[in-house]
Design a protein around this nucleic acid. Structure first.
Length: 641
RNA sequence: CGGAGCGUAGCUCAGCUUGGCUAGAGCGUUGCGUUCGGGACGCAAAGGUCGCAGGUUCAAAUCCUGUCGCUCCGACCA
């Protein structure tokens, strides 16, 4: 390749006879367009796209700031283009995650995004993902149908089966960081919930449960180390396994009020779980003055619990509370039945002051013979009428209740008097004792949503807060290997299905979570490890050649020292530049301005105070601060148990 | 998919109710000048098929129908 002329190198353009005329133009173009050998990070050439006003569709902080500071650009609903600044941050996030997973023994690979339907049918997940409609699909010209990778258990399991023949090769762990797709019901919150995103997904293969358990713990630590290095304060909580399946699972959460997940935790015992899975003890209801025999009471229009309780209190049941009412949640479950999906009607009863946890209910349905639940939805009003013979709001446990399965929460006493619906519009039974008065046969189970103020098994108070899920680890067991016939030869000369684990981190979501956790009124405050630049050099006196030359020298010296710096060479007032870099969130700022005459420049940490530093010390000082910040993050990682 | 709302300049929005002339503002962008350490000012300028299609009408950004897209409220997930 012919040597090119780069801006600032003062090279002679190649002499082309007869083209003198265009030489000046060519030279100017070359200076404008040709990238120098080493990337010069000049603000004027970075296509910065800061916005003074908030975008109209941004609800959460990370969305607002990432758009305003010019990191992401909306390309469609749930689709974002990563701008140059975002690319730099994402690259760093990916590198840190990859380093920690590799440190934990992972081998990096890249799998295809298109996955054949046939493969997914073999694991049985095609029907599941179609039923819940979480997978995007495409067809090729031959009509072959593909899913766009939401995750890659099938692909990696088939791969492992083809390369791993012996227990001697185990354990092994493969991982990748690649684009994932999800047909989101409703994309929102900027990078938080999108149709296309970057995820690190890892898959481990084992010959024993013990070995899986060890790797699971190693991965748990790798996750916490990675989050520590990313400058995020993350914690693990027990989680439901959802559509992935398996026997055990933890989610990694970033505490944030804007988070979509509710977490139940106990500071005393260390218990923490996603509310979908959280278990706890509910204080029993105080006794009340119930009639000795159940009474059918006319309760016109009192279909809501609060109205019903107020009405009955006025009728003389003065000590009645919502906790004495049996609330009925009527639902239609789509359950797996003989390879297909079949509807199953369910009535779930909880105490009137509580709510049904639909995830726990789904598991209860499976436990009580309903089959594996693909989907669960509340009944439509006409379905309620068909099942109860009454308007919605009057469903009760009498034999007339026309559903396939009845499940009662364990906190709802079957031997105590309750207020229940009469399966008749405008009527309730008061003082109904389920067991004594002929309530419909029902299974008792734990289906209630735990909330702030409940107690743990050890008797400590439970708290609730919100969080952003940035990672998830699962013990899969043999779910996929057995379905796909992925086996190794054991020391016993027999074939065994792999015992598997799988592990995911939403790399692009991590970026959003970092902004949620690190921002102020002026903009983003990136942790040093993932900031798009470590330092920005700002000449603060436009037109002052001495200032501009000094800024340029400092910038060059920072680069030469191996630091990631950017020079704000734009023709703008200092105030504009300061605002921009505060918004973008670069951790260190070197301002070259009025103190230059005395041989000093200003060094300011984002969100901190400014100090004046002699010119000959500035590079060392910036380097020290960068290293100190990086080392603090590494120490935090090493402190992970 | 159900419910609510919005599509007008690169961004944030007015104008629509009650149809009417060259469709506006602020920010941003370009040029010139004055400024220059926390989003300066003056002058000039560029930039719009009013989401798209059809209809009503002498006349549509405005009214009607359809359609596409987006946002918000509810059920999935990293």
């Amino acid at each position: 390749m012919a040597p090119r002329t780069h801006a600032g190198e003062r090279g002679e353009p190649s002499p082309v006879p007869g083209l003198r005329r265009g030489r000046a133009i060519a030279q100017r173009l070359a200076q404008r367009c040709c990238p120098p050998a080493r990337a010069r990070m000049l603000a004027s050439r970075l296509c910065l796209a800061t916005l003074r006003e908030d975008p109209a569709d941004a609800e959460v902080v990370s969305h607002r700031l990432l758009v305003r500071a010019g990191f992401i650009h909306k390309s469609g609903s749930g689709l974002y283009l990563y701008q140059p600044l975002m690319q730099r941050v994402l690259d760093k996030v990916r590198r840190i995650i990859a380093e920690e997973i590799a440190r934990a023994g992972g081998l990096e690979i890249t799998m295809p995004i298109l996955q054949e339907r046939e493969l997914w049918e073999r694991s049985g997940r095609w029907a599941l993902y179609q039923a819940s409609r979480t997978m995007l699909t495409v067809k090729d010209r031959n009509g072959i149908e593909y899913g766009l990778a939401p995750t890659a258990e099938e692909v990696v399991t088939a791969y492992a089966a083809s390369v791993i023949k012996s227990y001697r090769q185990l354990p092994v762990c493969f991982f990748q960081q690649h684009t994932k797709f999800r047909d989101e019901i409703r994309p929102r919150f900027g990078l938080m919930r999108v149709k296309e995103f970057i995820m690190m997904d890892a898959y481990s293969f084992h010959a024993s449960e013990d070995c899986l358990e060890r790797t699971y713990q190693v991965m748990r630590v790798a996750y916490l180390r990675a989050f520590a290095r990313l400058g995020l304060s993350a914690f693990a909580v027990e989680a439901d396994t959802g559509a992935i399946g398996g026997s055990g699972s933890h989610e990694f959460m970033i505490a944030a009020d804007s988070g979509e997940d509710a977490i139940i935790y106990c500071p005393e015992s260390g218990y923490a779980a996603n509310v979908e899975r959280a278990v706890g003890r509910i204080a029993p209801a105080a006794p009340w003055q119930a009639p000795a025999e159940p009474r059918l009471i006319l309760t016109p229009g009192r279909s809501a619990i609060a109205e019903l309780v107020a009405f009955l209190r006025a009728q003389g049941y003065a000590d009645l509370g919502a906790e004495h009412v049996a609330k009925c949640f009527l639902a239609v479950a789509l359950v797996e039945r003989g390879g297909g999906a079949a509807p199953l009607t369910v009535a779930a009863f909880v105490r009137g002051d509580r709510e049904v946890n639909e995830v726990k209910l789904s598991h209860a349905i499976a436990r009580h013979g309903g089959g594996s639940v693909l989907q669960l939805r509340p009944m439509h009003p006409e379905e309620v009428r068909a099942a109860t013979g009454a308007e919605p709001g009057y469903a009760g446990p009498l034999p007339g209740l026309g559903v396939d399965l009845v499940i009662v929460d364990q906190a709802l006493p079957l031997d105590q008097p309750l207020v229940v619906g009469a399966n008749r519009t405008d009527y309730h039974w008061v003082g109904f004792v389920w067991q004594r008065d002929g309530g419909r046969a029902a299974a008792q189970d734990d289906i209630v949503r735990i909330r702030d103020g409940d107690h743990s098994a050890s008797g400590h108070r439970l708290h609730e807060r919100r969080g952003i899920e940035v990672g998830h680890i699962f013990k899969l067991g043999t779910k996929y290997s057995a379905a796909l016939g992925a086996c190794y030869l054991g020391p016993d000369q027999q074939l065994h299905p792999f015992i598997m684990g799988c592990y995911g981190i939403g790399s692009s979501r991590v970026v959003a979570a970092a902004v949620e956790q690190h921002h102020d009124a002026d903009g983003i405050r990136w942790p040093m490890s993932i900031a798009p630049f470590q330092a920005v050099v700002v000449p603060a006196r436009p037109g002052d050649e001495a200032v501009e030359a000094a800024a340029r020298r400092i910038y060059d010296a920072l680069l030469a020292a191996g630091l990631e710096a950017v020079l704000d060479d734009r023709e703008a007032k200092p105030g504009v530049k300061f605002k921009d870099w505060d918004l973008i969130g670069v951790p260190l700022r070197v301002v070259c301005g009025r103190a230059l005459a005395e041989g000093r420049v200003e060094l300011k940490e984002r969100g901190g105070s400014a100090t004046e530093v002699p010119l000959d010390r500035i590079v060392a000082e910036v380097g020290d601060r960068v290293r100190a910040a990086q080392q603090a993050l590494l120490r935090a990682a090493d402190a992970v148990a």
